[in-house]
């Protein structure tokens, strides 16, 4: 299909069967997002596929939908806070773990990956209980903190791959040429881990913007993030307005890909 037409590469010709499967998968992966995009241009009052008429009226209705606008602002705030907390914490932790001779390295590693190994719904229960006891529920900053906690492993993976990739001889060269330890870090080490940091920051923001299940537990009406707001609206509601709001996510995702490709290269994203 589309793939084989673009690609003049040898791989596709060598593996026609495999390539056909992959082409189908590409369609399958894109399907729900495409459907949401198409329905968002629906001209009718209710969801119908294919739409009877096309219009941008539901996009025009977004600025007036204060529920969604408020929830979107909450999501941006929480995702920004998540990034601001997780990026420095992740960088320091990764450096401490890899460059320093700390004890119980493997145990620390298992501990730091806990947010990934604990099922997200259980993290939701835990943070609901703990934040409840601390009186932190229903605060957007608490959502930001929660997002930083549960997404930390992705930041760590992103930075550790960079830190692991540093050739120590470059740092040694800097030092033997007279650079002080701190100078070495600022001028030699940090620039090398920067791509990992940028990738991690992008991931933190996007994951924060999309996070749903933990936010569902620790927010209630009024401070909903956008995914939770969409969740409460979708069932039993057939207005294409939801599709228009949802397409914002598809567009943000596409934008993130373009930005990532420009800044660090798409390949780089794989290292996280």
């Amino acid at each position: 299909m589309t793939v084989s037409r673009w690609a003049t590469g040898k791989v596709v010709r060598d593996h026609p069967f495999l390539s056909a499967i992959v082409a189908l998968e590409l369609v399958f992966l894109a399907l729900p997002s495409l459907i949401v995009l198409v329905t968002s241009f629906s001209g009718g009052e209710t969801l119908a596929f294919p739409p009877e008429s096309l219009s941008v009226r539901w996009y025009a209705a977004i600025p007036g939908a204060s529920d969604y606008i408020g929830a979107f602002a909450n999501s941006i705030y929480a995702a920004t806070l998540c990034t601001a907390i997780a990026v420095p914490a992740g960088v320091l932790t990764a450096i401490g773990l890899i460059r320093y001779d700390v004890r119980f390295k493997n145990l620390t590693q298992v501990y730091l990956l806990l947010p990934f190994t604990v099922p997200l719904v259980v993290s939701g229960v835990i943070l609901f209980i703990i934040f409840g006891r601390l009186g932190w529920l229903d605060n957007i900053w608490a959502v930001g903190l929660a997002l930083a906690i549960i997404n930390l492993p992705f930041m760590l993976w992103s930075v550790t791959s960079s830190v692991n990739g540093i050739d120590p001889s470059i740092e040694n060269a800097a030092k033997s040429l007279g650079a002080e330890e701190l100078q070495t870090f600022v001028h030699v080490t940090f620039p090398q881990i920067l791509p990992g940091v940028v990738t991690g920051a992008l991931l933190m923001f996007i994951l924060g913007l999309n996070e749903f299940i933990v936010s569902l537990f620790i927010t209630s009406s009024g401070i909903y993030t956008l995914p939770v707001q969409l969740y409460t609206s979708i069932r039993g509601n057939v207005s294409p307005l939801i599709a228009a709001v949802s397409s914002v996510y598809v567009l943000v995702a596409m934008l993130a890909i373009v930005v990532a490709d420009r800044v660090v290269g798409l390949q780089r994203l794989l290292h996280s």
Partner: peptide
Amino acid sequence: LRKSLLAGVFVPFFTGTIVRAYGWLII
């Protein structure tokens, strides 16, 4: 080809659970 395949993975990955669940609901 490689970039298209990567984008094919990352766009849904970055679109989030709810929006994709909604897409499947429409389908």
